[in-house]
């Protein structure tokens, strides 16, 4: 079997050369991954394997860093570094914080 990410030699269209500067959240994903690897909480190999296991649909539809953060989250869940329920709570808390920040501009710099 050829796995979906293993694409060397397959036909494809022209190279799309437009580029985008990394958004702050994307840099944050990168930073999280670097720290996790440096602290030996996970490896790049696990990140790659996790991305490969997202499956072809996710691989094609998600952006690059969306695949990364999904893989990181899945690997951390697998390893018991974080729990499913607490992750769910943390996601809701992040959304609520964001909504509050958009509704009420602060007058002091964020920490």
């Amino acid at each position: 079997m050829r796995r979906h990410h293993d694409m060397g030699g397959l036909p494809a269209g022209p190279v799309e050369r437009s580029e985008h500067e990394h958004a702050p959240w994307e840099k944050k994903v990168d930073a999280i991954l670097r720290l996790l690897v440096a602290k030996k909480i996970m490896t790049l190999d696990e990140l790659r394997r996790g991305i490969e296991e997202l499956g072809p649909g996710a691989y094609d539809e998600l952006s690059y860093f969306e695949r990364w953060i999904r893989s990181i989250a899945n690997v951390l869940l697998e390893k018991g570094v974080i729990g499913v329920h607490e992750l769910g709570l943390a996601i809701e808390a992040a959304k609520e914080r964001r909504a509050a920040a958009e509704a009420c501009p602060k007058t002091v710099p964020a920490p």
Partner: peptide
């Protein structure tokens, strides 16, 4: 907009 993946990113960072 604040996407689900942005929230996931913040949530993972917050837990760590």
């Amino acid at each position: 907009p604040y996407t689900w993946h942005m929230a996931l990113t913040d949530a993972v960072a917050d837990l760590l």
